[in-house]
Amino acid sequence: MRHLLSISDLTKVQALSILDTATELARVSDGAVKKLPTLRGRTIVNLFVEDSTRTRISFEAAAKRLSADVINFSAKGSSLSKGESLKDTALTLQAMGADAVVIRHGASGAPQRLADSDWMRGSVINAGDGTHEHPSQALLDAFTIRKHCVKGGNDLVGVRVAIVGDILHSRVARSNVLLLNLLGASVTLVAPPTLLPVGVESWPVKISYDLDKVIGSVDVVMMLRVQQERMNDLFFPNAREYSRYFGLNADRLRLMSHNSIVMHPGPMNRGLEIAAEVADSARSVIVEQVANGVSVRMAILYVLLAGGPLEAGVK
């Protein structure tokens, strides 16, 4: 495996191996020493063409705990904001000797363009591209779900997950649908019909327009952020109505089944898709998701970067 562009690049065995590796690496984060020498001498570039402080610092922490050198390259104040093309940026990173590029980009498919081009040779890790995918988020979500909802067994067979909100524009939803399905969970998408993509019928999921009908029969409720720019784009009448039908409030929290958990990829709009008392409740694992993010991203970096080329595999 050279790149991580989409969950569809992964087999079930590979996905589980990343989760298992993350489980071992979580020890490092918990222990007194927060550093391993594994990626010493490797250069990882965080190329954040679209801003995302949370994802960037998570990848940065992961890389540093593995002793990699980290270069942050963000849109603001850089050549990227001066109209430099992706190609020229990639050529620059290649010239600097980047072993891997962690890329966040507003355009769907930009990481794949980098990986498929001959502009640079390093590994490409998709840290969220447009409305396409966010594979590291899905892996950390699966990691979190496995910790809470699975007894015995290492996959997610039998776990029931509802993903609620703006599916149409959500890269988190796309990656999660693929990964949860790969690991054997059953997924229900809950959204107003305007926020489901045409073509969703072909996805391996159930569809519901009614959160109240779904909420009592799932183990995980994963809330998606409602982007501010959707408010005035005819997807729903207004924030209040959206919140009434698709927000997770205290009343709905009480309908949730025993031992079920609430997730959110962040950043949250408290009071819109999730009520403050839900976000702070005992069912919420939202803060834990952030902590797990570092371990899972360490595992991704380890799997992609620690080994040499496959042909060197002679003992």
């Binding site: 298992d20 071992e24 020498p37 594994t38 992609l304 080994g307 040499g308 496959l310 003992k315």
Partner: peptide, 15 residues
Amino acid sequence: MHRDDLRMRPPRPIM
């Protein structure tokens, strides 16, 4: 994670 020959072989699973 502490091996000095990681890059000489394909990635190996962590035990």
